[in-house]
Design a protein around this nucleic acid. Structure first.
Lengths: 337, 337
DNA sequence: CCCGAATGTGTAACCGTTTACATACGATGT
DNA sequence: ACATCGTATGTAAACGGTTACACATTCGGG
């Protein structure tokens, strides 16, 4: 059905080896022969089959990217960063998403097996054991926001704790006594770390932690919306809300506006991620900047380094720093200056 | 380096055929043998190599999704819809993005070659000839928003024209005389169709078309932001702005707010796509609803139908209907009721 | 006791490439 | 005239699986 190298070889009156040499610009082949082969190939619409080639060269020029989910702008930004870096290095990206469960991840990892030269795995909800169990030993792997503490892997983790800590501390320093948090998905590393940062900042400020101020969320806009509504039913409103990501902050903002609560005047609001849209919201969202696209890009670079340096490559575990982006929604400019 | 079926076979004391049968649940194999093979395989951490398997079965259980770009929420929603549908059918999705140029697309198609059983291509900027030239003849293909008019392909196109037409007509009917448009990327099918709908609606309303009201945009938030600023420099402001997508509407909204222009009171605003965040904006964005996730899902279903029905499969070219979602930003509720 | 069927397993060809090695041939140097 | 070399090409063995077919064994029935 599909035209193979053999047919090209036959029609051009040469061996498959020669055709192969032409397509790989490898070895020597007479200029005239080269021309004839190219001509026949074009005529037959021949393209080398990636499977056959990959099988024999043991490389695929592709990198796999495994993501837990695909809601909001966060993940697509990661993909964008990775894809860009990959293409610059003449690699291609194979993306597979929605792997929150162990089984799904396992199955996805399996599909990737053989198809890619290396793997980037973002898996903030899978426990260390399950993850390691399923990760291929034979392929370079870069871990992103994974619950793994093991120097036999390259890994990058967003400094969620510090980011959340600093943001909440900022809110407290500007006079907020009752700071609420809209939590992220349960058992999710990012969510847990951000919660930890929130609590620490409050504790240090000598504020009490109120269970009622820690409300459910799952990183989606609608959960942020509902969370904000719930917070407004409390007899004592919070004066500030820290949403564990920008999507939820957006949902919360929408709920607050609907209920006629002025942001930041009545309630201050802050998010996390600094997704592209956050600067365009009204009020512009104060948030914790995460270098999202860079995250994808550095993962790719790490991987490529592992390919090229092979044995000289030394694994690295790094914390990716975040920074505060104070725009309007936290109200600090009003309170400070 | 990597453990193969041979090693498993050897260690389990059987032939590779038997191991293969075990892993495919095909043919008969003694219960005891099956158990032993599984055990050895697990011990050796064996996973069948996708390349080898694909080469001999001529199927990969994977579907390729080619996207032009990855900005904003639109594309990630397409991916989400496709991935979900794919997984339900036990297929895996290979995503590749950023293929706005012919070369990039060609190269991406090449990588996919052999790796996938079918292809979904969204390519609103590539001309029909270049596209057909590069599309594999041997694989089922579903075209999404492509400039191709050919019944030898399955294809789905968003009804951009009608969507834009109806939205602009709506604005006109509510008294807007000067309706501006923020255009989408040049040479982009979606952009062109939306522009066509805009013009037609104005013409029908007997309004004149002003070149100055058709301003540049490229579907990004920042271009929407700049476009709105530019529109405000006109001696005669538009009373309504139709942005060719939601991202640009968001950017425009931000610019208007900064310049102290009330939306929708002073200037009405509408977008296109009905991306998830649009309902959460303030004011909530009136927009043209596009069933984005469905788009990905129906493409997958079409493809799977082509796999299973093989010869009985009849190609279909369909226009995906859009619908108006009137929220706050167009101000119609105020003007009507 | 023999035949045919059922059951379990192995052999080897094949899928589409690449590539180490072999071969053929003309040119060059002595 | 011959060894040597370079150049252009072919041969065939991988790569890691699947599967048609063959073979061996067991079992039930006549």
């Amino acid at each position: 059905m599909n035209v193979t190298i053999k047919e090209v070889a036959k029609k051009a009156g040469v061996s498959t080896a020669t055709v192969s040499r032409v397509f790989n610009n490898a070895g020597v082949v007479d200029e005239e022969t080269r021309r004839r082969v190219r001509e026949v190939a074009h005529e037959l619409r021949y393209t080398p089959n990636a499977l056959g080639r990959g099988l024999s060269t043991r490389r695929t020029d592709a990198i796999g990217l495994l993501l837990p989910d695909l809601h909001g702008e966060f993940f697509s930004e990661v993909i964008r960063g990775a894809d860009q870096a990959a293409q610059q290095n003449r690699y291609h990206l194979l993306v597979s998403s929605s792997h929150t469960t162990r089984e799904a991840l396992q199955s996805a990892l399996q599909v990737m097996r053989g198809r890619v030269d290396g793997l980037i795995v973002m898996s903030p909800s899978i426990d260390e054991h399950s993850l390691k169990e399923n990760l291929p030993r034979s392929l370079p792997v870069v871990l992103l926001n994974c619950l793994v503490d093991d120097d036999s892997y390259d890994s990058f983790n967003i400094d969620n704790y510090t980011g959340a800590y600093e943001m909440v501390r900022h809110l407290v320093q500007h006079g907020h006594q009752r700071v609420a948090i809209i939590k992220g998905t349960e058992k999710n590393l990012d969510a847990e770390e951000r919660l930890r940062g929130y609590r620490q900042a409050l504790r240090e400020a000598g504020a009490e932690l109120h269970a009622e101020l820690e409300v459910f969320g799952n990183f989606s806009e609608s959960s942020g919306y509902e969370a904000a509504q719930k917070l407004l039913t409390l007899r004592a409103h919070p004066t500030a809300i820290f949403a564990s990501n920008d999507s939820m902050a957006l949902g919360a903002l929408s709920a607050l506006r609907e209920m006629g609560v002025a942001v930041p005047q009545e309630i201050a609001l802050a998010g996390f991620d600094d997704v592209p849209i956050s600067r365009f919201l009204s009020p512009a969202l104060s948030t914790v900047h995460v270098p999202i696209t860079d995250l994808g890009a550095i993962a790719i670079q790490k991987l490529i380094h592992a390919f090229t340096e092979k044995n000289a490559h030394v694994k690295q575990q790094a914390l990716v720093p975040t920074s505060l982006v104070l725009r309007e929604s936290c109200g600090c400019s009003k309170q400070i200056s």
